[in-house]
Write a protein that binds this DNA or RNA. Structure first.
Lengths: 127, 127
DNA sequence: TGCACATCTGCAGAACTGTTCATATATCGA
DNA sequence: TCGATATATGAACAGTTCTGCAGATGTGCA
């Protein structure tokens, strides 16, 4: 695909070729990176972890994350745009829920890992 | 813990309390977000996916990711600082390997998901 | 010893991100 | 209908992030 790949010498061209062969396409990489990026902000992450147990409304989410309601709303908008969360409106409240099974798996894995790490290194815990 | 939590009215104070109770500590959230953040850049992600199969040297990684060798080195430095990758030096080459079991799990899960999605929606594939 | 090569590093500019502030929309109750 | 409440939105600003460049380090070979 790139006949000019020789601008730099390769140490192990065969490995490079085989890695390239099994590498997901650019678009898939970009999409996946987007998802990880959404989980890469501590506030957003906390918000999503809160939603693991079920739907919550904006002001409750704001209280949990310590974020202003405006910031919470902006964060939720971003997550909504990526279809990670969904909304249910009831009167003047908006109840958000985690709506992406893959993200849920990633979150479960991550939370389990922190609990596991916590169990093995309790000295790292904090109030 | 927060006697002043009443600056905003809560819709479901009990849920908020129970979510807060099972919420990981701020430090764990921050650490987890850091990890996700590292995976949130497409170049870095591609780099790490390349390392799933075994160690590779900097110039091969640069060739795979399409990144300049300088940018590759910067990215690897960041990953090294977070102990996600490790180095083995051999002569003037530096061979990097994926060194974090948790990150490996996240990557495996993500790659499996893109392959699964690919299988269900082949129209989204690209050359 | 001197040169070529592989990698690393600091710096600076560009691009991106997250927050706040101000304001808009929409719903409920009086 | 009016006012209070809940959420949404846009603009702007501060802080962060990524990349390229230039130069440094260190290794191998002649």
């Amino acid at each position: 695909m790139q006949p000019d790949a020789c601008n730099v010498r390769l140490v192990d061209p065969e490995r490079v070729a085989s890695v390239n062969a099994r590498m997901p396409g650019e678009e898939d990489i970009a999409d996946t990176a987007d998802v990880f990026g959404l989980l890469g902000d501590p506030r957003r992450l906390k918000l999503l972890v809160a939603l693991l147990d079920g739907e919550l409304c904006v002001c409750d989410l704001a209280a949990i994350t310590g974020l202003s309601e405006s910031a919470t709303s902006h964060a939720l908008r971003l997550l909504r745009a990526h279809r990670v969360v969904g909304v249910r409106r009831d009167g003047r409240n908006a109840f958000y829920r985690l709506d992406d099974a893959h993200v849920r798996m990633l979150l479960d894995l991550a939370v389990a890992h922190t609990e596991h790490t916590e169990a093995m290194h309790p000295e790292r815990s904090e109030a």
